[in-house]
Every structure is written in structure tokens, then in C-alpha cells.
């Protein structure tokens, strides 16, 4: 049930990424909402949740995108795993570490995407990734607070049913 909830959440995230996010982008800078959700899901749910959300969200993006297959899956899966290791270090409710994780996740996502694009022989798209990094990070930080609040709320909602 918990897994289905996460999968459904990622489904909604990818749909929002392709519909609502373009409407709030400005100057050609488009945030990666799915990445924000994966990073924060990993921090609140742990590495298993991070990898699950990363693989599913990234795979949907890859399947629906016309870009090189695998870039989103590999990037998000890696971020989900790495961020999941910090689950217990996060003081749930304090926004500082999640915000730092979003900054690290944005930079990490850029670096990982660049590495994968390089491996696929698509180096031409790499400069654009880094040129847009600062405004994209700002966008991600803006999105992080409501997403993190929603994830914490969902986690608290589940807690009594889990039975420890």
C-alpha cells in the first residue's frame, strides 16, 4: 500500500512536470519538479523509497521524453539512493537540511546528467545545463518547502497505521 502511494505520487509529479511546471517557468528556465520530489522523498522515507521514486519517476520521464533514454532514470535513481542515506540525519520539520539537499541535488543532478550525456556522445547539450543552474536551483528551493511539508504530512498520516 505504501509503495503504491509513492508510485501514485510520482505519477502525479511527472504529470505536473509536463503540464503545470511549464506554465510557471520563466525565461526558458524550467525546474525539475520530479527531482525535487525524489530528493525529499528519499530524505523523509529513506533510501528504499528514494530509489523506488527515482527509478519510477525517472523511467516515466525517459519514456515520455524524446531525449536520450536513461538519463532521467539513472540520475534520479542515484540521487534517491544517495539522499536516502541521510534520512536519519534530518530533523523532521527543520527546513535547513532539506534545502541544502535540494541545492546539492540540483548540482548533483546537473553533474550526473552531464556525465551521462557525455557517455552518450551528446556533449553539445551540457553547457546549457550549467548555464541555467543558478535560476533552476532558486526555483527548486521555492518548490521544496511545500513539497517537503506535504511529504511530512503524508508520513505522519501513515505512522499510526504502520504499527511501528
Amino acid at each position: 500500500m505504501k509503495i503504491l502511494m509513492w508510485l501514485f505520487g510520482m505519477l502525479l509529479s511527472v504529470s505536473l512536470q509536463s503540464t503545470v511546471i511549464p506554465a510557471i517557468s520563466a525565461g526558458g528556465v524550467q525546474p525539475d519538479f520530479v527531482m525535487v520530489v525524489v530528493v525529499l522523498a528519499a530524505l523523509t522515507g529513506g533510501r528504499e523509497t528514494g530509489v523506488l521514486c527515482g527509478v519510477f519517476g525517472g523511467l516515466l520521464q525517459d519514456l515520455l521524453s524524446v531525449g536520450p533514454f536513461g538519463v532521467h532514470t539513472l540520475t534520479k535513481m542515484t540521487l534517491g539512493l544517495l539522499m536516502g542515506f541521510y534520512e536519519r540525519k534530518v530533523n523532521q520539520g527543520n527546513l535547513l537540511l532539506p534545502m541544502m539537499a535540494i541545492v546539492a541535488g540540483t548540482v548533483g543532478s546537473g553533474v550526473l546528467s552531464a556525465l551521462f550525456l557525455l557517455a552518450y556522445g551528446l556533449a553539445g547539450a551540457i553547457p546549457a545545463l550549467f548555464l541555467r543552474m543558478v535560476p533552476v536551483t532558486a526555483y527548486h528551493l521555492l518548490l521544496a518547502a511545500p513539497v517537503y511539508a506535504a511529504l511530512l504530512w503524508l508520513k505522519r498520516l501513515q505512522a499510526p497505521k504502520m504499527g511501528g
Partner: peptide
């Protein structure tokens, strides 16, 4: 490109896209 999976993913997401595209238009 896994065309079958792409089609499946598109089919699953299309209803959500319809709903959210209305919201995006509103924004």
C-alpha cells in the same frame, strides 16, 4: 525506446495531463 512501455505510460498519464493542463492554463 520501448514503444509499448511509452504508450502505456502515455495512456496512464493522459487523464492526469488533461486535468493538470486545465490548471496550467488557469495559471
Amino acid at each position: 525506446r520501448y514503444p509499448l512501455m511509452s504508450r502505456l505510460a502515455a495512456a496512464v498519464l493522459t487523464p492526469f495531463d488533461y486535468v493538470f493542463s486545465g490548471l496550467a492554463g488557469g495559471i
